[in-house]
Amino acid sequence: MAIGTAKELVETCCKTILTERGIVFSKNADIPELVKLTAKELDLTPADIPDAARASDTIKRLLSNLGAITQGVAELRNHYGTGHGKASGSKGLQARHAKLAVGAASTLAVFLAERGP
């Protein structure tokens, strides 16, 4: 349940920022697409960082990793979340893995929100 909620937090954050900025997005947009669109709107893509900026390579790499976070949370939710029926006897993640997903998603949401609307 925590993993699904973490994914929904990022989706809600992105949709709120995009809506408040008047950016049209597909109702069927998945979380990686929403994050990518939001990052572009907020000038948070690697291309937005000038090469001359201090630690530009590091900042660009971190911004690129935003996509990996969202893809990972979405994949965990698909495999272990409550959104899909499970066969009896299927095992879930350990609490530490759910905490990792929640922590990564909440860090991303705060980062976007602080830059947002």
Rank of each mutant, 00 (worst) to 15 (best):
L44Q: 15
A98E: 15
A29H: 04
V110A: 13
N65I: 07
I23C: 13
G85A: 14
E11M: 15
A53I: 00
M1I: 04
D51F: 06
T12A: 08
D57N: 07
K27F: 05
E20Y: 04
V35I: 11
L9Q: 04
N78Q: 12
K36D: 09
T38C: 14
E8W: 01
N28E: 15
S90T: 15
T82R: 12
I23Y: 04
E8P: 00
S64Y: 04
T16W: 01
C13K: 08
K60Q: 06
M1C: 00
R77T: 06
G4N: 14
E33K: 08
D48S: 13
L18Y: 07
K91E: 13
E8L: 12
S90P: 05
A2P: 02
T70Y: 00
E20Q: 12
K91Y: 03
T12Y: 01
T38A: 08
G81M: 03
A39W: 01
G81L: 01
G89W: 11
D51Y: 05
E11R: 15
A52Y: 00
L44K: 14
R54F: 13
L42K: 08
T19L: 11
I3F: 01
A2S: 11
A98I: 07
L93F: 02
F25Y: 15
A39L: 14
H84F: 15
L76H: 08
I49N: 04
H84R: 15
V110N: 09
A109P: 02
A105F: 11
T38D: 06
K40E: 06
A6Y: 01
T70V: 14
A52L: 01
T107N: 14
G83T: 12
V35R: 02
A105R: 11
P50L: 07
L108K: 02
Q94P: 08
N28K: 14
A113Y: 07
D30F: 02
H84V: 14
P117L: 07
A55K: 08
T38N: 10
G81R: 02
T107R: 10
I49W: 06
T58W: 06
K15A: 03
A113Q: 13
Q71A: 15
G67D: 13
A6P: 00
T12H: 04
T45K: 15
K40Y: 00
R96P: 01
A74L: 04
L66A: 08
A29N: 09
I23S: 04
A87I: 08
E11V: 15
L100S: 09
F111G: 05
L66F: 11
T19P: 03
A87F: 03
N65E: 11
A105I: 13
